[in-house]
């Protein structure tokens, strides 16, 4: 079974459904989202790796959630899409990783600004539920997450440990 996980734990009753499902609020593909932005209901967008995230700029304040797709673990375009959304476009809403989400990628996704994750692999769900992330708290580069500066050189960061 697929679940949604955030750093607060597994999400019960997540309202967002992938396109094609008939219940819940919709995650719309980019073209439909641009269209839909003219009426007033809240909506989310699901982007594919080839989509230009900059197209969302004019309607970004209307978007409640953006799902970025990993069609395979090896397709890392969404890492750059996420950085652009957070750093360049200043998007503050929920950003979800969907598709092939490997446990060992979750720490990198958190750093590039993702905050919710669609996961189906049972051992991964278990690890995430126990909040045992295989990440490293010391970073050699700034990213989109909140971190402490340094120590030492300008490019270094350390994680903010929650709890």
């Amino acid at each position: 079974m697929t679940v949604i996980w955030t750093q607060d734990g597994i999400v019960e009753n997540d309202p967002w459904a992938q396109p094609g499902s008939d219940s819940g609020s919709k995650l719309l593909p980019l073209a439909e989202a641009l269209e839909h932005a003219r009426d007033n209901a809240a909506f989310g967008v699901v982007l594919q790796p080839a989509d230009d995230v900059r197209a969302l700029a004019p309607i970004l304040d209307r978007v409640a959630i953006i799902a970025l797709t990993f069609p395979a673990f090896s397709d890392g375009r969404a890492f750059s899409q996420a950085m652009l959304l957070r750093e360049r476009l200043g998007y503050q809403g929920e950003m979800r990783a969907v598709g092939t989400v490997l446990l060992d990628q979750v720490p990198l996704m958190l750093r590039t600004g993702f905050d919710s994750f669609e996961v189906a692999h049972a051992p991964t769900i278990k690890r995430l539920a126990e909040k045992r992330l295989p990440g490293i708290d010391l970073h050699y580069q700034p990213a989109a997450d909140e971190t402490h500066a340094g120590p030492g050189y300008s490019w270094r960061r350390t994680a903010m440990l929650n709890g």
Binding site: F73, S74, D75, G76, F79, S80, M83, Q105, P107, L108, M109, R111, T112, I136, H139, Y140, Q141, A143, Y153, W155, R156
Partner: peptide, 16 residues
């Protein structure tokens, strides 16, 4: 060396 540090476990560029 600066590049070595900066590129180590780079969150954006690990799945090029």
């Amino acid at each position: 060396e600066i590049l070595r540090q900066w590129s180590s476990v780079h969150p954006e560029f690990s799945f090029l």
